[in-house]
């Protein structure tokens, strides 16, 4: 159950887009194992038939009218960009996908 292997952690780090070093992987396997063992106790709680709770307050149907609000200026939008070109965010080459 709480047996997280080094490969598991490497896979999760990939999903989370974190390039963990070998040393970090080694360390994290142990740390996560301890934490997981502790948090896995939720499975012992008497939760049969209990409705999961995703939101602390029971609000519903909060919407806004379809009315335009001012956007940022392109300068403000791009101000924090590590790199920009042609009023666009410049990003490294994207690996094949759509």
């Amino acid at each position: 159950m709480a047996d997280l292997t080094r490969d598991d952690v490497a896979h999760l780090a990939g999903l989370a887009r974190i390039d963990l070093s070998e040393a970090e992987l080694d360390r994290m396997v142990g740390e996560l194992g301890v934490i997981l063992e502790s948090v896995a106790t939720v499975q012992q709680a008497p939760t049969d038939g209990v409705e999961p709770m995703s939101h602390p307050m029971p609000l519903v149907n909060v919407t806004r009218p379809d009315v335009v609000r001012p956007s940022l200026s392109p300068d403000a939008a791009l101000a924090g960009a590590p790199d920009a070109e042609q009023q666009r965010f410049s990003v490294p080459r994207i690996l094949d996908e759509e």
């Binding site: 999760l12 989370a16 390039d19 963990l20 996560l32 934490i35």
Partner: peptide
């Protein structure tokens, strides 16, 4: 992936991995 490894500290990485799991 390189930025997130360099830019996040250990505790943040630990919790992100835990949450991803």
């Amino acid at each position: 992936a390189a930025t997130r490894d360099a830019g996040f500290g250990d505790e943040v990485k630990r919790r992100i991995i835990l949450g991803t799991y």
